[in-house]
């Protein structure tokens, strides 16, 4: 593993980009690593483009700048690829791009490693609602191995586990499904 891994997540307000970054950071922490997650602050309007950031490292993380040269980019809403120019910052050099989509052709993205995952479809099937986050992070774990499935399960159970365990269980199911799909491909 490189000294520090940087992940940038793009979504729209309400889709949970910040939660996705948190879950990845908590999962990495559960895996025994150092991690940091933070939002591109203050634009919490439903539907507006938002960014969230996650760093994972073997040593304590001191750096606080936003992420301009990510190792990985996760795109929760595919319409942002053409709509939000920030999505493309540093995208040429990143290892891989993960998109919530069934489409496979992305002329705007100058990167050969694009993984498409039908996260919305998986979420509707497993959770019953288009809560795409857990499917996407499951796919991310399958694609990169940066966080373990066990770590993610702990993070998701902590976050969504409450009186009704079904919420956590259905989210874990969505995560595992996306993980398997990416692993197979």
């Amino acid at each position: 593993m490189k000294k520090m891994m940087e992940i940038r997540i793009h979504g729209r307000g309400g889709q949970g980009a910040v939660t996705a970054a948190e879950l990845l950071a908590i999962a990495a922490f559960c895996d025994g690593k150092f991690s940091q997650a933070f939002p591109s602050f203050g634009v919490e309007r439903r539907g507006a483009p938002v960014m969230a950031f996650c760093r994972i490292a073997e040593t304590p993380i001191r750096l606080r700048e936003q992420i301009y040269s990510p190792e990985y980019v996760i795109i929760q809403d595919a319409s942002l690829v053409v709509f939000d120019p920030q999505v493309l910052i540093g995208i040429e050099k990143c290892y891989a791009v993960l998109i919530n989509s069934e489409k496979t052709n992305w002329p705007e993205i100058k990167n050969k490693n694009i993984v498409n995952i039908p996260a919305t479809k998986i979420a509707i099937e497993k959770i019953g609602k288009p809560f795409i986050n857990t499917a996407l992070i499951g796919a991310f774990a399958g694609m990169t191995g940066a966080v373990s499935l066990a770590g993610l399960t702990r993070a998701v159970t902590e976050k969504f586990g409450g009186k009704d365990n079904k919420v956590a269980e259905s989210n874990v199911a969505a995560m595992e499904e996306a993980y398997r799909l990416v692993k197979k491909s």
Partner: peptide
Amino acid sequence: GFVLTHTFEP
């Protein structure tokens, strides 16, 4: 504000 208050870290 935000840089620390809204950041997850160990």
